[in-house]
Design a protein around this nucleic acid. Sequence first.
DNA 1: AGTGGTGGGATCGTATATTATTTCGTACAC
DNA 2: GTGTACGAAATAATATACGATCCCACCACT
Lengths: 231, 231
Amino acid sequence: MTATVSKSQLAYRTIKERISDGSYSPGYRLVLGRIAEELGVSAVPVREAIRLLEAEGLVQFERNVGAQVAMLDPTEYQVTMQTLALVEGFATAVSAPHMTPDDVARARAINDAMALTLEHFDPATFTRLNLDFHAVLFESCPNPHVLDLVHRGWARMRALRESTFSFVPGRARESVQEHAELLDLIESGADALELELAARNHRLRTLDAFLAHYGAPDGVPTSSTTGEGER
Amino acid sequence: MTATVSKSQLAYRTIKERISDGSYSPGYRLVLGRIAEELGVSAVPVREAIRLLEAEGLVQFERNVGAQVAMLDPTEYQVTMQTLALVEGFATAVSAPHMTPDDVARARAINDAMALTLEHFDPATFTRLNLDFHAVLFESCPNPHVLDLVHRGWARMRALRESTFSFVPGRARESVQEHAELLDLIESGADALELELAARNHRLRTLDAFLAHYGAPDGVPTSSTTGEGER
DNA sequence: AGTGGTGGGATCGTATATTATTTCGTACAC
DNA sequence: GTGTACGAAATAATATACGATCCCACCACT
């Protein structure tokens, strides 16, 4: 009656959820038998779920050794964030023409709520609202592949950054400001390319801020590779 | 001795290969037991492989019913190609600064070979060389995620278009021409954004040509959504 | 003390068997 | 003639069991 979800699906969703919400933090070792027992299923569906999560990059897997939640790694962070910027920028541009005035209003309301969280230090809420904000932007996206890429990127970032990946101290206020500008652009019916770059650079600036704050990885150039920016 | 690949991996690679080369054409029904027997393994690893391929979009899967190779569908084609254009454009821009003069020379050689295939009608060879061409472009890409997205896109297109997805009658010659221009841009050390858009529009023009040739899907606008283009 | 080998424990990998679900054909009733 | 209900066959889904592999600690030998 409850849509009779398969046990593989159950294992997949449960593990993914636990990675996202931090119950399984980066490096946590995922033992098939233990998880299977815990969920009341056999090891086979758990293994299947873990292989899927491996394909998404959420867990690392080694044959005959086991799986663990993907580790926190600045380089990982950079390329993932870069890819997310690419995909989100595109998704924004494609979605914008399909957004209703009501959609824009909802996005503004969420952004206002984000501004309120700045009064207190609350990275988790900030990140959650940030996801909601972008979710509103993308919900009219007619390209399901791109949407899927966005969601995978988010799942990765959540796993890597423990639920606060959008929040960089000293950058949050600008982020809210840029959101507002982005909505203005959308309302003004701006050019698709202009929108895409605005949305992309919004993420890339967060990336730069993060790298500046936590230190850039070794050989990777910190300039964000693509955009209008100053070289 | 042969790196002792797991049977799941074997099943995965074999099925993917057969989808790519057309042994399993779109719509072909993948029956667990039959494939398992054929490969000399049990049904469990085959099931796992099929679930992974489902996650990549290469096969469609329905619970308790079975799997089949993803069907040919103009809308599918459009969004996949659009996504591929996005990702390839970005990959080109990111890779370009890392390309050596030798890399560019190799790409030119492949492009010359493509020009030769225009003498005869040979879509399969054309598409293969086209993949080689872009592979050279991307092999210096420092972002593995983006590369992975490219490869998945290619696999999808192969599955959907039966090994000739880059070839649209009447467009091949322009394609070769645009490749040459792209290489010129790279050699001239062009701006990253300029490169990205050039590479993206190269794919999008192929998409438009395809849609014009085979007919556009129903409600989807044929203009390629993003780019400098004439609106 | 350092190095190489060896055994045990833990864990994954897969085959087999069982169960649950769906589908399709057939027969019966209307 | 058509629609429905029932049953058998096909197939996927999972559990269980066993085998293969890897890691680690301990011990012997140098």
